[in-house]
Design a binder for these strands. Structure first.
Lengths: 180, 180
DNA sequence: GCGCCGATGATAGTAATTATCACTTGAGAA
DNA sequence: TTCTCAAGTGATAATTACTATCATCGGCGC
């Protein structure tokens, strides 16, 4: 298996294509198309460094100095919900530790924050030697599977009840649409 | 490729083995063996739910009610540094967003928090169908490669200078030993 | 053009770390 | 065993990244 760093220069065309259909996608997702949302998705598509909300906000403010950081936070979460963005740091709420040093991977319920260890037979072998990303010295790796656990999937299918995460109980409503 | 949830009942023996060599490993890492550290690694090895610092602290306090939450935070990071624990949430500092919806993966510099997109040819195909973890409804997945970027590796090899992350500049010193 | 409900800005509030610092203690030296 | 001292700890203040609240604004369906 071969690893290849994604080139930044591929991005311009991709960003243009995404911007072209953004308004339609918003409406399809039941969202109003606002100048803030346009500016935020544009800034996100223009960045290849997986920015934080603060960085997006700074970029957006170059043209729209009035935009609030709170709006940027809210909008980025909204974009993830309708599938227009991904959060790289799935469970960034709080640090989670693992005593298991054997090679293994994780299934994560994005709603209740449950994490289970899983083993994937053959994956180590298949990836061996493929992790030498140019410009980096790798020392570990792990596969993360984003999911809803059966309990949470049941809740979502039903009426939608409160999640158990710390920050943001309202996440309940948000996660609803994320897993297509 | 086949996925298998790691059974909790395997853990007791594993935990015992790890505890048996913990003191020696601490000394090898240049760390004092304190009752707090013993209690914390024991609590971590006794848990299969990838606990937060607060949960570890609660467990530890059942026997050592005086232990400080700050010590638990510090110790967990220390354990990661000497390789006795793993942090599941590699970049939990702050939320990072990605506008790239194409299937891809990430190389992460744990020191300067740089993230690059990478593609791994054949990985999608190899894993197809293998992600059905019993008890979960998966909707996404991604491989994370933990690394030092060349810049940071250079710094570490040299004298060890300040990192760029937000929280915790002292992390500089800590990361030093992690990538074996 | 009108009106409504979602969206936004400003700001206060919250939670998870992290820093600080005085005091304690593990562990090698004597 | 006792001594010494740097590493480790507890208590708590400080920081930071979000999240809630709420008055106001403005897309968008009519």
């Amino acid at each position: 298996m071969e690893l290849r760093i994604v080139k930044d220069n591929r991005r311009a065309a991709y960003a243009r294509a995404r911007m072209a259909e953004f308004a339609a996608r918003c409406r399809r997702g039941g969202l109003a198309v606002t100048p803030q949302r346009l500016a935020i998705i544009e800034a996100l598509l223009g960045a290849t460094d997986h920015p934080r909300a603060e960085a997006i906000c700074a970029e957006v403010r170059r043209r729209h100095p009035h935009v609030s950081l709170a709006t940027v936070h809210r909008t980025l979460e909204t974009l993830c919900r309708i599938g227009e963005a991904r959060k790289v740091t799935t469970l960034h709420d709080s640090a989670r530790y693992d005593g298991n040093l054997e090679p293994h991977h994780h299934v994560v319920c994005v709603r209740c924050r449950r994490i289970r260890d899983v083993e994937i037979a053959g994956l180590e072998r298949a990836l061996a030697g493929a992790l030498a990303a140019p410009g980096f010295k790798p020392f570990g790796w792990s596969l993360e599977i984003q999911a809803l656990c059966d309990d949470c999937a049941g809740l979502d299918a039903g009426a939608g009840r409160a999640p158990k995460s710390r920050r943001a109980r309202k996440r309940a409503a948000q996660v609803q649409a994320n897993p297509a």
